[in-house]
Write a protein that binds this DNA or RNA. Sequence first.
DNA 1: CAAAAGTTTGGGAGCGCTTCCACTAGACGC
DNA 2: GCGTCTAGTGGAAGCGCTCCCAAACTTTTG
Lengths: 347, 347
Amino acid sequence: MARVNSVRPQSGSGSPTLDEVARVAGVSRATASRAINGGQRVSPRAQSAVDLAVRTLGYVPNPAARSLVTRRTDSIAVVVPEPDDRVFTDPFFAGTLRGVTRVLGERDIQLVLLLARPGASTARTLRYLTGRHVDGALVVSHHRDDRLAEHLSDIGLPCVFGGRPWTGGDRVAYVDVDNTAGEREVTELLITGGRTRIGTVAGPSDMTAAADRLAGWRQAMTAAGLAADAVEHGDFTEESGVHATRALMERHPDLDGLVVASDLMAAGALRVLAELGRRVPDDVAVVGFDDLGVAERTTPTLTTVRQPVVAMAERATRLLLERVDQAEGSHPMRLIIPPALVRRDSA
Amino acid sequence: MARVNSVRPQSGSGSPTLDEVARVAGVSRATASRAINGGQRVSPRAQSAVDLAVRTLGYVPNPAARSLVTRRTDSIAVVVPEPDDRVFTDPFFAGTLRGVTRVLGERDIQLVLLLARPGASTARTLRYLTGRHVDGALVVSHHRDDRLAEHLSDIGLPCVFGGRPWTGGDRVAYVDVDNTAGEREVTELLITGGRTRIGTVAGPSDMTAAADRLAGWRQAMTAAGLAADAVEHGDFTEESGVHATRALMERHPDLDGLVVASDLMAAGALRVLAELGRRVPDDVAVVGFDDLGVAERTTPTLTTVRQPVVAMAERATRLLLERVDQAEGSHPMRLIIPPALVRRDSA
DNA sequence: CAAAAGTTTGGGAGCGCTTCCACTAGACGC
DNA sequence: GCGTCTAGTGGAAGCGCTCCCAAACTTTTG
């Protein structure tokens, strides 16, 4: 401890190592390591010596070396198998990322954004995840054919899906809103309101959220003895909502209700209806899905189904971290959030 | 080579290691490593033996071990010192991320999203970056007091700023649009159009983009001998644009021109003007800044200054990767993009 | 045909960290 | 007074990889 030695970092070889900290603190590398990581089984004396050394040296542990032995990286991936331009315009992703970062911020875990463009790069994503660059993965918006659920469960990487996966739903955990119930209820709202000719602008048919919402609409329609034949698909963007609504109104000019699978698409629908001179809700009642800000800003404001995206993302992230912590084990769990109707002016 | 040995991965100890690949391929670990990394100095025979072993074993290199020795992590951070709710609503960030991911996708580099909330977590961000978790950093929207430029240049981590940093601009590289020139020109447009009473809704005064645009407006005004006294600050959000415009119009009801420092704020301004019954552009001409989609969707559509955000982010990322590659050296470089006026209906 | 030059190869030394384990001191009980 | 605990410590063994270097082999050349 009283040993005289040079205190300066060894020959400017870059950042100081644990070895140097130990030398400066006058303890062994093992003790220094313990002191830095929580300080179990370390005397107060040694602890403060190490603390001081860390501070004077400006020591920061080398993450690669650490994770080589701990087998942890303290980072998780958010996987978004979606063309990048869609990701960054949809408030759904914005909300998701917000929820994730909020939870991650509580602990010292970082977020790796994995944008898997369609096709080829799924393989790359998979390779990345297999390589254990991250401790876990949150898959956000996946499509039928990426088979991500199976692949991830094969790899054995802790993961949670945001939204029910197509297949392998029994092998992975997921958090989802009850899409079917939500769309059913909001459709029933229109029916109760006296609408009899209700069409739907559904989402892309390779996504479960879209399929489930479509199913909800169908259930309500058939239960009420109404024809469930006016269906058009979009891809959740406003643009696609415009096209789908145009097509729908052309084929079924008599529609008096429109159940749209996302607010963004509903905003497009409202624009088309305005062009067509139909009054909303007088001539045509319109409902959306999501309630992430857009619904409040349309004219008229949108009656919709609220999907608490931020909260869901937080839950999903917590779930993921739990699974990461208790390593393996813990069988898949699903968390289904009840949807909430939000009545505004469009229906 | 003809040695008989068990080919199956050693005792289910998790993922196969390079050692196992080497054993299966009948070569040394060194040769296997070479074969896997580019295959310089490897005979075709050995190469294919290794390739086969990799494939049958499903080998994926352990990134921690690799980066422990290479001192590369093959990932870069995008640092956003901004409250998370702003990040995900502003099309500016969306565009930036898009540019970044596009370039990163070309190589096998991952993106770590570092959202530094104001205050305390800047320290954490800095610690993370100091720890060399990433090979470089792209700082996107920084504020005056985070002093990120100095800190990063101290750390010695390759970094590029999106937008001129407040201080330390001579020590770090950055890519920026010529904010001053852009705002000056668009102001001159109003002046040429015969407007004489032109106010401005500026951005937050702790951001260089805002300060530079304000300066551009001032230059044009004073050069034309007009009073540059109608100034109000917002924070680039639509909401703040509403407040600022309201305050501005109250104090200066005679304004016939409005130079707004972002399209989002300009959208807010348009709403206020509509409320106030002023016709745009007849009574008041309005111009924005950014042109990232919002400007096309307002009523009337917005005359604005185009900032090619995606392209800029791409350039910035390329610049960053260059700096990462040639390690250290290469003195700071700045890339100033000329702005482009986009004429629409609002002025 | 030997020497020189080039090409492949494997041994081995780390990269910086955590953690097992054996060991030393005091604290404590009888 | 002497075992018996317990808290604290350091030595050393890896984690899985890259890369230097010298050895072994192949080709070229005089």
